[in-house]
Each structure stands twice: as C-alpha cells, then as structure tokens.
C-alpha cells in the first residue's frame, strides 16, 4: 500500500500542502476524543492540514484510525475539542447550532456509507428534499433534481423508492442528492463500503466524472486502497494522527 502511494504520487509534507488561497479547508491543531461508557477514546490528536480546493482528497487509513472523525469535523456535524477547523474562511467550531445547519446546507454535501436516503420518498423526492430549504420554486427544484439524477444515470428510476433500488442505485441517488445542493465540498464516508466490487468501480468512476465536470471539492474517506484512483491528494491517518500526505497525479 505504501509502495503504491510512493509510486503513484509525490510525497508531500504539511509544509508542502497548497497555500491558503488554494485551500478550501484548514485543520489547525485539531484534537477530538469520544467517551464511550467509562472509556475515553482519542480519535484525533493535534492534526493540522489543508484540503485543496476543486480536487478530490482521499482520507485513507485503517479502521478506527480517526478518518470518520476527521470527516465529521470537515462536514460540520461535530466540533473539535481543541484547535480549529476553518472552511471557506469560516471557523466552523464557533458557529451556533443553527448557523452550522445553514453552513452545511450551503456548503457541504454528504454521501454516506449506508446511503441514508429517506425511505418514504422516491429518488426524485429524495433529491428534491435537500432543495426545500434553498428557496427554489417547486418547478426549479424538480428540474434540478431531475438534472442530477439523469447525470448519475437514474433517468428511468425517478419514481422508485429506496427499497425498490439496488445498493449501487441508492448510492447514485445519494450522489445526486449531494450534488444537487451544489455545495462547496462533498464529503463521502466510505461510499462504497456496502457495495460489491463492480458497483464500487462504477460509483468511483461516477464520482470522479462528476468531480471533473463540476470541479467540486470531493473528500472521500476510505480504508480501501483500490478506491484511490486518479489525481488529487491523499492524507493518511493512523491512530488519530496524520501519518502521511501526498499529492496524486
């Protein structure tokens, strides 16, 4: 795994990460711990790094390394114990609960491991739902949802509910939902973990294609080295610390 990283890209340290103007997010001395019962678990330890704008960044590491915690902080659904997370110039840890929700709505798109679609809504409605708070007219919502569902290849499945779709199709709906909000960053937490290998390839290709077309910043969290394919940057986390960063070409 390490060999592949070295082979495919150029090793970069934090000092060599993009300068602030080229970054969409910056972690500075971030620590985060969780308490489960009486046990305290240190998920991230004094992490500092930058996420480049308009690229795909891969957060890679073994299970329990702190990848998801990193993504949660980047997705503004959790707060750091120490340090700061700055996204698009905003210290998101200082936002109120309500302001954080607004920030997520405007700037963050989510792709979850378990798809997390609303089961009582069909594919079209699931994508439309995220646009409800955008102030779009019903017609505009419908048109935009259809556009992104067509883009992910679900033209013929608009009226199907999640229970009537395959895993790959559900994740396509989730990708369309994330894209439809036209956010600044799309965070994807193990987006292919519940998919078979063929579907995984399709979904990875789709996300890369979407990134190429839309120039949106994708941040993918994975423990699967095969998912790291294409250009962008890689950040490896081990035991809550950044073990390695690399620019992929």
């Amino acid at each position: 795994m390490r060999e592949r990283i070295s082979r495919t890209g150029q090793d970069v340290g934090l000092a060599e990460t993009p300068n602030p103007e080229e970054c969409i997010a910056e972690f500075s001395g971030v620590s985060k711990s969780y308490t489960t019962g009486r046990v305290q678990f240190q998920a991230l330890r004094n992490i500092s790094c930058r996420i480049p704008k308009g690229q795909t960044s891969y957060i890679f590491g073994p299970s329990g390394s702190g990848k998801t915690t990193f993504l949660n902080l980047l997705g503004v659904i959790d707060r750091a114990d120490n340090g700061s997370v700055t996204i698009l110039g905003t210290r998101v840890g200082d936002l109120s609960d309500s302001a954080a929700a607004d920030f997520r709505l405007r700037h963050i798109g989510y792709i979850f491991q378990n798809f997390n679609l609303i089961p009582v809504l069909n594919a079209l409605e699931n994508v439309e739902y995220i646009l409800l708070r955008r102030g779009l007219s019903p017609r505009d919502r419908r048109e935009r949802a259809e556009k992104y569902l067509h883009a992910v290849g679900l033209k013929d499945f608009l009226q199907r509910r999640p229970g009537e779709l395959s895993g790959g199709q559900r994740q396509r709906v989730a990708i369309a939902r994330a894209l439809a909000g036209e956010p600044s960053i799309i965070v994807a937490d193990e987006p292919t973990a519940n998919l078979d290998s063929r579907t995984t390839g399709e979904i990875v290709d789709l996300m890369q294609r979407m990134q190429d077309e839309m120039k949106t910043t994708f941040v993918l969290c994975t423990h699967d080295i095969d998912l790291i394919n294409g250009s962008g940057s890689l950040l490896r986390i081990v035991d809550g610390q950044i073990d390695h960063t690399e620019r992929l070409s």
């Binding site: 659904i77 929700a101 709505l105 989510y110 609303i118 739902y129 995220i130 708070r133 909000g181």
Partner: peptide, 8 residues
C-alpha cells in the same frame, strides 16, 4: 441524516 443535510 436530515440534520447533516442542513435542516434545523
């Protein structure tokens, strides 16, 4: 999920 998507 709904809250992560930006709903209050």
């Amino acid at each position: 999920t709904v809250r992560a998507l930006g709903f209050h």
